[in-house]
């Protein structure tokens, strides 16, 4: 609550500052804000709905079996693979991750999913290769994958 409140205060202050410095730019900024929000809204609503449906059907026991503490390396590995392959925007991944955590998933598995989702992009390989070439793309993604798992293990150790 305090966190949300302070974000609102800072944003309002920055918005006012921007408005006093340049009205036109501020209007453009707000239009961009609205457009990016509107862009993500359909997927956003869908995923919230999907989370609702899945969590009401799957029991916490099932989720914790697949992604909980006892899923161990198998859970971490499958979470990392899913994170690497899929292309999910953060605005959709974080609510999902948080919902899974609340219903029995463990930190290591969820952190592995989030980390690989952010850093490793199998689907975007062709695009990355176009700019950086094969070798560079392969090196960046492989190290990103390995470090993601490392980060996940450390997060688990600290937060549990």
């Amino acid at each position: 609550m305090i966190f949300t409140l302070s974000i609102y205060i800072v944003t309002t202050a920055l918005l006012l500052l921007s408005f006093f410095k340049n009205k036109t730019k501020t209007k453009i900024a707000l239009r961009k804000s609205w457009r990016s929000f509107e862009n993500i809204l359909p997927q956003f609503l869908s995923v919230l709905m999907l989370i609702g449906i899945i969590l009401s059907i799957l029991s916490p026991e099932t989720i914790s079996m697949l992604l909980g503490k006892d899923s161990g390396w198998f859970g971490v590995a499958s979470a990392s693979l899913i994170g690497s392959i899929t292309l999910i925007p953060g605005f959709i991944a974080f609510p999902l991750a948080s919902a899974l955590l609340k219903s029995g998933a463990a930190y290591a598995q969820i952190a592995a999913f989030i980390s690989t989702l952010m850093m490793v992009g199998v689907v975007t390989f062709p695009m990355e290769i176009k700019f950086f070439g094969k070798k560079s793309t392969l090196i960046r993604n492989s190290f990103a994958f390995v470090f993601s798992i490392l980060i996940a293990v450390i997060i688990e150790a600290v937060l549990e």
């Binding site: 974000i7 944003t11 730019k25 453009i28 804000s33 609205w34 919230l48 989370i51 449906i53 059907i57």
Partner: peptide, 29 residues
Amino acid sequence: AFKLTGVNLLEMLSILPPVFILLGLLDVW
């Protein structure tokens, strides 16, 4: 399921306005 969706939606919507306003401001400035 509906209840879960509603609760999540309210929670997310409460943080989204400042996040997107910041996004726009950063883009412009």
